[in-house]
């Protein structure tokens, strides 16, 4: 019986290790490839061990870019992506927490109608409304700008609904106690509701940051200038080159760099993230 358990455990661990290997191998390849000489990769002689070009490849990637016509330092692309992802994540949280506050705590005409309108936008992601959205952004002269990158993606039904659900679980007595304690609507929001929503906000931030960071279609459409490129669009452009060898080490280095901020955000906010998903502080 005991041996049986042991064998079972080894089998289970073996399966898990296989799974990890399948997931991790491409990442490993990307890291290895980003440290090798391009000619070697082009010849199909890439080693599975790290090469010796780590510093020069990453230096070139971050500060110079590929040698092709659309040369743009990846550092700049990362900055663009970072600004966009932060603006989307923070903007979404800010807007949706305020609208959820209005919908849950205030009685005003057409409250439910407005709630349903927000709800319906769940069914209209950017891809569906891309033409009208593009038209509006273009008419507002926001093409090739951070505002154009982030603003159309900020309004969020999901986050509003999430905050609404959370607010509805906050006992009414807290609001009443605040009213007796002389806190007006803004104070109650700032002093009580925001601190209570902290873990929810952290969880949302992680999800929304990654969502924003991974945007591809929208930035591709509205940015034409190279210096406004985001990293996801940039990688794609690096791969398709005309009349030249794809500079795989640089492409791979870019891919590795593109992974870092989401990884950092997840690791940094993991504790809060998990708490926000599983428990409500009450």
């Amino acid at each position: 019986m005991v041996e049986d358990e042991g064998i079972r455990r080894y089998v289970a661990h073996f399966i898990l290790w296989v799974g990890i290997a399948i997931v991790a191998f491409p990442v490993y390849i990307a890291i290895v490839a980003s440290t090798q000489d391009n000619a070697l990769i082009a010849n199909g002689q890439m080693s599975l061990l790290p090469g010796g070009h780590f510093f020069e490849v990453y230096y070139q990637t971050i500060f110079v870019g590929t040698s092709g016509s659309t040369r743009e330092p990846v550092g700049n692309m990362m900055l663009n992506s970072l600004v966009m992802a932060l603006a989307i994540a923070i903007g979404k949280i800010a807007i949706s927490i305020i609208s959820a506050y209005a919908i849950v705590y205030f009685r005003f005409p057409f409250r439910m109608a407005i709630f349903w309108i927000i709800f319906i936008t769940l069914m209209l992601p950017v891809e569906v409304r891309i033409y009208p959205t593009y038209k509006i952004v273009a008419d507002l002269h926001m093409l090739d700008s951070y505002a154009g990158l982030a603003l159309p993606l900020i309004a969020s039904a999901t986050a509003t609904l999430l905050f609404r659900q959370f607010f509805m679980t906050v006992p009414d007595e807290l609001l009443e106690a605040s009213r007796i304690d002389g806190a007006g609507p803004l104070r109650f929001f700032w002093d009580t509701l925001l601190p209570l929503s902290r873990t929810n906000m952290a969880a949302l931030f992680v999800i929304l940051f990654i969502l924003g960071w991974n945007q591809y279609l929208w930035p591709l459409l509205i940015t034409t200038r190279d210096d406004m490129q985001t990293i996801q669009v940039g990688i794609r452009k690096m791969i398709t080159t005309t009349d030249a060898l794809t500079e795989w080490p640089i492409v791979m280095a870019t891919a590795v760099l593109a992974m870092l901020p989401p990884v950092f955000v997840v690791v940094a906010m993991q504790k809060l993230f998990v708490r926000g998903l599983v428990e409500t502080e009450k």
Partner: peptide, 20 residues
């Protein structure tokens, strides 16, 4: 008159303490 201006204090059944 608003609750805050009535010069009253209330103790709730579930205490309604600010959890944070």
């Amino acid at each position: 008159v608003e609750p805050a201006d009535r010069d009253i204090a209330m103790v709730f059944q579930n205490y309604a303490l600010y959890p944070h």
